[in-house]
């Protein structure tokens, strides 16, 4: 009997924390999303789907959703293509390659909160670094973080800068995994650089690309630190992203019901999206055995 239970005993410590701080919270959020629980309802009251209806009627919610989609899409597209491009270049060179790796990767090891502060300082109007050089070149000053049309892009730039080195390193792992004989065979067959990329390299690293794509989706939907430090969601909600919105609702306005509802929406959205991607693209990915 004890022998049969033994494997589960090994799993118990990890499973215990996993259940209490990952799975239970998910169900707790779903449960709480059916309650009004805020400053006017200090003890929670069951109200069915009213939180969801309130949110869907609220233009701020749609604005946040739009911002998040723009943020995710643009960071994914730009940082993945740039990272792949850089990985291919780094893979080509020998001399200086560790300098390039260190220079491109270091943003990964500094906290986003610290990075956001440095970038905020670069973005300061008039005497910040960017405006200073723009002014020197004769361009007008740009209000990087206070202009509702530009602020989200300023935040996106930080997100790309922070993770590009990490994705580059992951792509590099994929590139270094391609057997040299395969590339040589393609060269012997007379394939030019572009053909080698589209018919050999890109298919061979597809499992890496797929993996990076998935972590990029999850990562970009979690972006909050730079929003908190740089803009607090403003101006006019133009940089308010989903996790910051959760924070604002639950911890600034003490609206826990809405916070739980937003959490539920985010998790369901993530799970549906990721399983959809696994079903549609995941099958076509090449996995080496």
């Amino acid at each position: 009997m004890l022998k049969k239970l033994k494997p589960y005993l090994y799993l118990l410590p990890a499973l215990f924390f996993l259940i209490i701080f990952t799975y239970y919270p998910v169900f707790r959020a779903i449960y709480l999303s059916f309650f009004k629980w805020n400053t006017s309802y200090p003890s929670k009251v069951f109200t069915g789907f009213s939180n969801y209806i309130d949110l869907f009627k609220n233009p701020d919610f749609w604005k946040v959703l739009k911002n998040s989609v723009i943020y995710s899409l643009s960071t994914i597209v730009i940082s993945m293509s740039l990272a792949l491009f850089l990985a291919i270049q780094v893979n080509k060179v020998l001399f200086m390659s560790s300098f390039y790796k260190v220079a491109l990767f270091y943003p990964t090891v500094i906290p986003m909160a610290a990075a956001a502060l440095i970038w905020k300082w670069m973005y300061i109007p008039d005497y910040g670094l960017l405006d200073f050089f723009l002014g020197k070149l004769g361009f007008p000053n740009i209000n990087w973080l206070n202009n509702a049309k530009i602020a989200l892009w300023s935040i996106i730039a930080v997100g790309i800068w922070k993770y590009i080195g990490y994705y580059m390193i992951l792509f590099l792992a994929g590139l270094q995994n391609i057997p040299k004989s395969l590339i040589d065979a393609a060269i012997v067959e007379g394939a030019n650089g572009r053909q080698r990329f589209s018919y050999v390299i890109f298919p061979m690293i597809s499992s890496y690309t797929f993996f990076i794509f998935i972590i990029n989706i999850i990562n970009s939907l979690q972006a909050i630190d730079q929003v908190y430090i740089m803009t607090q969601g403003g101006p006019a909600n133009s940089t308010n992203l989903i996790v910051y919105y959760i924070y604002e609702q639950a911890f600034r306005f003490w609206n826990r019901g809405i916070g739980a509802t937003l959490t539920t929406i985010l998790i369901i959205f993530l799970l549906v999206l990721v399983s959809f991607i696994f079903r549609s693209i995941g099958r076509r990915v090449y996995y080496e055995v």
């Binding site: 709480l32 999850i218 996790v243 739980a260 959490t263 998790i267």
Partner: peptide, 12 residues
Amino acid sequence: MIPPQSIVVPNY
């Protein structure tokens, strides 16, 4: 797939 950031409300 469920990063800690997304479940801060119930965890809090």
